[in-house]
Amino acid sequence: MSTLRFIVDNFQEVMYLTWEHIWIVGIALLIATPIGVVLGIVITKHEQFASRVLNGANILMTIPSLALFGLMLPILAIINMGLGKVPAVIALVLYSQLPIIRNTYTAIKNVPPALVDAGRGMGMSKWKLLRELEIPLAIPVIIAGLRTAAVMNIGVAAIATYIGAGGLGVYIQQGIARVYPEMILSGAILVSLLAIIVDGGMALLERMVTPEGIKVQRKLSR
């Protein structure tokens, strides 16, 4: 109850921090998506790089977030950006790569070879095939990858407050420092809510981008 009180009393600030949180995650996703999708597609066409790229992305993801911030600090300090939103966004972009690349890669690989063969045999260029067949069939799974990345990033962004990135993590960090349970809880609840809402939103998007023909196919094969 007192937590709710805290949120109401500090509504202005809550809104600001929520917005900041969404901003960090959103920018990171905007940058990460084209990189990850392009990489994912490229490695389907150049299979020799596939395992290296996927392993690389996997290693990135296993580095604990605080350690990653620490590792980037001296490098970014050179251009005077060791702290703040820039390292936070970079870290989120790096973390996003695995789910995005992996989903893109698997989804494109899962397009039935006979379809690709038919397309090639009719004289479709690689680019045309991607646009008219492979990406439309892969897009729901690619969006699912973005969904994983987004939800994960909301959590990681809460930790980025330790390098001065702002966002809802501020309440958790300061609440702990000041031993102020309502503040901690507000931060925690708001971050969780944000994650749940984004997850739901992305699930909706996933359904929306599924091509009509695929929906029909799924319905009929049930």
């Binding site: 039935p112 006979a114 379809l115 063969d117 038919a118 397309g119 090639r120 045999g121 009719m122 004289g123 260029s125 008219e132 067949l133 439309p136 069939l137 091509p211 009509e212 023909g213 695929i214 196919q217």
Partner: peptide
């Protein structure tokens, strides 16, 4: 040219290979 050649030759396969996302 590969693409022109293929467009000149109709191609029909056993797996049919209709694109499920297209009408």
């Amino acid at each position: 040219d590969v693409v022109q050649l293929r467009q000149r030759l109709g191609y029909v396969i056993q797996a049919i290979g209709l694109f499920p996302n297209k009408t």
